[in-house]
Design a protein around this nucleic acid. Structure first.
Length: 784
DNA sequence: GAGTTTGAAACT
DNA sequence: CAGTTTCAAACTC
């Protein structure tokens, strides 16, 4: 495979090698690459590994691998790869580039979709590391935990190289379809990370890391690519991606991101378009002024050169930017971007800010690092997701929380604050958000506890959650028979792809099997529209945190279904309510409920009272309003459970579903309390109407935000004004949708109606979370 | 780390 | 819709 060192770089494209590489399926671990010869080894390594293997321990592995990769990588890359630019041969970077290109091509070949999802997931995941991690850069490079990252890097690198040094290569890449671009985006993002990180690290952390990073980059890139190709994936990577995303976001945040935030709804879509269309230009332009870019690149290069001396920094820098945007697009689409940004901001404000500045500076702010990377693993349960803060799924929450803080920070930095948060929500970045959340969640823990922290606010706390969180943060599923295609699988349930941390067997919940995953998901959703809805949603603070809409609010949190605990007394994680940090509600059928967050009895009684009130008022709008308020209060107070209703469902679609959660994430920690409004609906059938209203209320708030305007308005006419706790009233969906008792038949309708979260369907759509075609259409059509 | 417990998800 | 089975997480040792 290797090409002779002397080979003409230009030919590289045409060279059999190139094609071969493309064709190769990644399989081997980096090691092989190591020992192995140049390209093959690389390919193998790339393919191989399961991303997980490579990235597995982001930290450790990464470093090790990175190092290895470096040496090995650099060596042969240089020798062999360099061919790309004859001139550059000497430069290791070039060589690396070539390699990367290969990888990229392969990756590109595959669909970008996965990437998105992946990104989301990853985003969520975050690098598990402590706040110290700062090394994210390193992480990424090193193989950050997340696969994606690595791959991305590779890709990104390519792009960079292409741009700067490897025109030819670029052409090739450009040739690739948008899809490729997308992938590239990832890569680019990665690169950004790489580039930035490296520089940062160099400055701040240590040259060593840098080196590692660089090396990693080169090496990992390949690996990533392979992984990417194979899995598409990203997903898995999600975790890794998360980090990368963070970087990207941060960067973006600095530039485009912020703007995006500002325009939540559009942002995601717009982003997406940009990505697809001509991201590069816009991205670059937006993010960094050329001058800055050049500077950055130069600086970076310098840094790199010093340490690694291999990578063409200039290129990287640019690519990074691109990557960032792209990713952002992707993520933003998911909503994730925001978070990432936030995270980054938090951790790496430098990025965003840095844009202009040298990466080095950014790096220097290690502390920033994203924080805690705790890992957010995924793992969390849906509940977590729901919680927003929840840990699990989403990490969302955690992320959200984390994000929030981060956002804030960023905002502070940039000036946009919460809006971003709002955007998130709206943006539909859902996926991203979710993922993000997941990360956070995982990190943090689910329970209300975490949320609190998370939600609360302080940015810093966010990531800690993870810390707080159980170790689980890193945990993921360990499915054996479900193939990770059932709700048993936490990853699947959370709407994220399985990644390294997972110890699952026969896993089909990977980007590679995207179709299967989506189809399965749809089936499950069809059966139970709320299946992917967060079990618990926390609103509470979310709104406040978000600030944007206090109303949004999601209410606190809602327990989608309620638990059915018998022996755990709702005092153990077996209890979804407890796990979600929410008190049990009327919806619960638990026995001997002792939920420290609020017992069912209390909730029930509270609800009953409310119900009664509501019941009386049911008809009159005013009454409704009152009820809503009351309910809202109750909700917030109690569990803060909100019935998000459909919207909740985040599904893999990352895009849509995730988005919402973020908001929730903000949600406060659950209070002990009483019953949760949402759930209440169930409890009192009699009051169903009322409940439905309530729900609608809550849901409305949510919906409103998320729902496409179109849907909203149209539907509304008939709808009763419901007063959302916040004040908003959305009526739309409900009726048709009627949130009504979740469990019962109504759900499906509701779900469908629920526009905002396109769950899976959204996937295809990819872009706007909000308008998931399915739900949206349903709403539009039916509302009524 | 293996085995048990638990309750949700899936199935009938 | 209720009951049963399956499953994987949570928990215990």
């Amino acid at each position: 495979l290797r090409q002779p060192a002397g080979a003409d770089p230009f030919r590289f494209k045409d060279s059999p090698l190139f094609s071969f590489i493309n064709s190769l399926s990644p399989i081997e671990p980096l090691k092989s690459a190591y020992s192995g010869n140049g390209l093959q080894a690389y390919h193998q390594s790339l393919n191989v590994t399961s991303v997980s293997s490579i990235f597995t321990s982001p930290h450790h592995n990464a470093h090790k691998e990175s190092k290895l990769s470096k040496s090995s990588f650099a060596d042969y890359t240089e020798n062999e790869l360099c061919m790309e630019d004859g001139t550059d041969k000497n430069k290791s970077p070039t060589s690396s580039t070539a390699v990367r290109l290969f990888a990229c091509t392969s990756t590109i070949t595959r669909e970008s979709h996965t990437m998105i999802t992946c990104s989301v997931n990853e985003g969520i995941v975050d690098p598990p590391k402590g706040p110290n991690d700062f090394p994210q850069p390193g992480r990424f490079d090193s193989g950050s935990p997340d696969h994606n990252t690595a791959p991305c890097h590779g890709v990104s690198v390519r792009s960079d190289l292409k741009q700067d040094k490897c025109p030819k290569l670029e052409t090739v890449q450009t040739t690739n379809n948008t899809v490729e671009k997308r992938k590239c985006l990832f890569s680019s993002d990665m690169q950004l990370q790489d580039g930035c990180q490296p520089a940062k690290e160099n400055n701040e952390v240590m040259g060593c890391e840098w080196e590692d990073l660089v090396s990693v980059t080169s090496g990992e890139l390949l690996a990533f690519d392979s992984s990417m190709d194979q899995h598409h994936t990203g997903v898995q990577l999600a975790v890794n991606n998360a980090e990368s995303c963070g970087y990207l976001l941060s960067k973006l945040a600095g530039g485009a991101d912020i703007s995006d935030r500002t325009h939540p709804a559009t942002s995601s879509q717009a982003y997406y378009h940009e990505m697809v269309v001509g991201e590069d230009k816009t991205e670059n332009g937006q993010l960094f002024p050329e001058d800055k870019k050049t500077i950055l690149s130069e600086e970076i290069q310098d840094n790199i050169n010093e340490e690694n001396a291999c990578i063409p920094l200039g290129c990287k820098v640019e690519t990074q930017q691109r990557g960032v945007r792209r990713r952002c697009l992707v993520f933003e689409a998911a909503g994730y971007s925001h978070r990432t940004v936030q995270k980054e901001s938090v951790g790496d404000l430098s990025f965003s800010t840095c844009k202009g500045k040298s990466s080095a500076q950014n790096h220097r702010n290690p502390g920033k690092t994203p924080s805690p990377h705790v890992f957010r693993g995924i793992g969390l349960h849906l509940n977590a997701l729901a919680l927003t803060s929840k840990d699990k799924m989403a990490c969302q929450d955690p992320l959200a929380t984390a994000l929030v803080p981060s956002l804030k920070t960023e905002q502070d930095v940039h000036g946009n604050l919460l809006s971003a948060g709002g955007n998130f929500v709206h943006s539909g970045s859902g996926l991203l958000d979710l993922q993000m959340d997941n990360d956070d969640c995982s990190v943090g823990g689910f329970l209300g506890n975490d949320h609190n922290s998370s939600q609360s606010s302080s940015p810093p706390k966010k990531r800690r959650k993870s810390d707080n969180g159980d170790d689980d943060s890193c945990k993921r599923c360990s499915c054996k028979k479900s193939k990770c295609l059932k709700l048993y699988c936490e990853c699947f349930a959370a709407g994220v792809y399985c990644s390294e941390p997972c110890s699952c067997q026969g896993c089909l919940n990977k980007p590679i099997h995207e179709e299967i995953v989506l189809s399965t998901r749809k089936q499950i959703e069809f059966r139970n529209p709320l299946a992917f809805a967060p079990k618990v949603i926390r609103m509470s603070e979310a709104g406040q945190e978000t600030q944007e809409d206090p109303k949004n609010t999601p209410a606190s949190a809602r327990h989608k279904r309620g638990c059915n605990c018998k022996k755990s007394s709702c005092l153990k994680k077996y209890c979804e309510c407890y796990q979600g940090g929410v008190g049990c509600s009327n919806n619960c059928r638990c026995e001997t409920c002792k939920n420290t967050f609020g017992t069912r009895d209390v909730a029930v009684s509270a609800e009953n009272e409310e119900m009664k009130q509501e019941g009386d008022q049911t008809e009159s709008c005013e009454k409704e309003k009152e009820n809503d308020q009351q309910k809202a209060n109750v909700h917030s107070e109690d569990h803060k459970l909100v019935e998000l209703v459909v919207p909740i469902t985040p599904p893999l679609d990352v895009s849509s579903s995730l988005l919402k959660q973020p908001n929730f994430s903000n949600a406060k920690p659950p209070r002990p309390c009483k019953a949760r409004s949402g759930s209440s609906s169930r409890s009192s059938k009699a009051s169903e109407t009322v409940q439905s209203r309530k729900i609608s209320k809550v849901g409305d708030s949510v919906f409103i935000e998320e729902m496409p305007d179109i849907l909203r308005e149209p539907s509304s006419p008939g709808i009763v004004k419901t007063c959302s706790p916040n004040g908003k009233r959305v009526s739309p969906p409900h009726n048709a949708l009627s949130i009504s008792p979740n469990r019962k038949g109504g759900r499906k309708l509701i779900l469908k109606s629920i526009p905002s979260f396109p769950s899976l369907a959204g996937d295809t759509n990819g872009g706007s979370a909000i308008c998931s075609s399915d739900s949206a259409t349903a709403l539009a059509l039916g509302p009524s």
